[in-house]
Design a protein around this nucleic acid. Sequence first.
DNA 1: TTGTACGCGTTATCAA
DNA 2: TTGATAACGCGTACAA
Lengths: 362, 362
Amino acid sequence: MSDETKGAAASGGADARRRRNTGRITLRDVAAHLGISQISVSRYFQEPQRLSEELRERIAGAVAELGYVPNLVAGGLASARSRVVGMVLPNISGPIFADTIQSFSDALTARGYQLLLASSYFSATLEENAVRAFLGWSPAALVLTSHHHSAATEKMIEGANVPVIETWDFQPKRAPIQIGFSHVKVGRLAARHLVDMGYRRIAFVQNSLAGDISALDRRDGYIEVMRESGRRPWTFVPTEPQPLRAGRQALEALVRRREPADAIIFANDNLASGALLAARGAGVSVPDQCAIVGFGDYAFSEMLSPGLTTIRPPARAIGELAAETIFGLVERDRDDPADGAPAAPEELFCELIQRESTHEVR
Amino acid sequence: MSDETKGAAASGGADARRRRNTGRITLRDVAAHLGISQISVSRYFQEPQRLSEELRERIAGAVAELGYVPNLVAGGLASARSRVVGMVLPNISGPIFADTIQSFSDALTARGYQLLLASSYFSATLEENAVRAFLGWSPAALVLTSHHHSAATEKMIEGANVPVIETWDFQPKRAPIQIGFSHVKVGRLAARHLVDMGYRRIAFVQNSLAGDISALDRRDGYIEVMRESGRRPWTFVPTEPQPLRAGRQALEALVRRREPADAIIFANDNLASGALLAARGAGVSVPDQCAIVGFGDYAFSEMLSPGLTTIRPPARAIGELAAETIFGLVERDRDDPADGAPAAPEELFCELIQRESTHEVR
DNA sequence: TTGTACGCGTTATCAA
DNA sequence: TTGATAACGCGTACAA
């Protein structure tokens, strides 16, 4: 039963030959409708400049008339590439990465890319699962956070021929492309600010969520500055999982001491605002009795009263640069493998935003 | 040594047979490695219970050893279905939909589904582009917001055989599955609260972002209650695009009148908090001089001072129910088309959260 | 329980 | 500028 396969199918008639007709309008349907070959319709979407203007217009009409929607799955299989980018962040719904997600997503959308998003909640296992699933889609690139991944994740990344970008961190020694900043420097910046303002008993409050290793880097920076300025580092680890409550817990613990803290650096703005809110109720005056510094400059941090002194990460720039880097890599691969910019890892920097929760001590 | 064809592929040697070798480890490689057929390896992932335990273990070993990652693109093409769900919301990075995204994403992840996310920014065109791209991936379902789509979007949705769920709205007449609440009722709830508290000159401030039609529904509910209680509706449309500034603009405009507003309902908590912040600076006391009500109960709304009275949407429930509904639909299709729950649209309800920005007037 | 054969809808390759 | 043909890697249908 070796009949002429393409002829009948191209006529668009009842093709009983196809075993599983999904009912979907395909490239072949559009081509048959116009009496041209599939590949021309494919080119209409891939490289329209190669088609004559007349053909282009005919195809455009047929596409609109039939309501053809390109099957990206089939295209992805045939080309072993896709316009999807996978992004795994510790938290895709909180305020922390909001600006990064937005700027990244907008840049992707503008270039016709789609975004696969997943939260890792600082769990290497969840990250691994997300990476595995995303790699299954032959993404144009993968965007991860920080440099701490499971061994299996590292292995998958090496095996897959997919560019990986690590964001929100910068460790000069790492091999993959990194778009971020040094958390140690952030910790130093916060501590230096408080030391310069004249505070003496400066504490650091860690994230109660284990796995936030970047927060530990910030703590290390804080410790460095404390040592350099002849002070004793003093860290507190809250047990409350909920950030607002953890912040409250830390404030109460650190202020109700014989030698209470006169300034506290929190691992992030969520914790810091929990402390700020608790301070009101507990009659602790901020910043007179105790100064507070956060990290992240979340949208609400300037709306608190007193306004929260914090450190603003280059969240938007990270998203934009990540997207640009990906576009650069994809285009370089398409043209000449040895061409184009080497995609040099760029160190970004954070900015201290001083508000009312810290002030000069005299 | 007799199985030359498989051996070459598994060894990764130069197999002239395959025209475009992507270098990727495939089902075939795993099968060849074990000397079994591809389909058994496929079944290991699809329906492992059909395999003998011994075979299952051998396959598990080979998968781990070779670092095989299933190609979801190929699987999606073969089966015309995928474990991807597309979600288009007006804003994927703001606090508004944060809880919906998180609960939805978590539910998907738990069942091995992936999430494609896009922002529409209240633009029907951007939504249309996202829907077109997402449909190209043969998603298991599509989740949209509200009931307002472009004609082209509606057409694509009808043509594609993909279940669509509309969220964050509830209009009894609509055909697609809806998981949300009535915005008219929300407007009524806010207005009723203020009327009951004794406020007299109650204004409504719209979103400065055109396209937020749900906010207009809330306004309509407000207007109904005002009419019912013999008051004159009074709406203000800010021109400032930035929400915080728009809120400030509205407050200033409404309070500096000959007959100033004594209560303002804002289209959302962003606008409301802009007004709350401006009130401090402008010496307007809230709620004594002017009460403020928002919508959304964003994470920061309880952290403001005074705390913001607002209406809390069932954001988390929407995400959870949307995910459950999708799972139900997918499983129903797999088993018996005429079986299972009919996925009845469920009306959800909002809750008024009273904080310090409104109080009883006497 | 395991296997064979084929096609899902597109793009890469080669040809005209 | 346009076309014919063969993969891409997997799941479905059917067979043993």
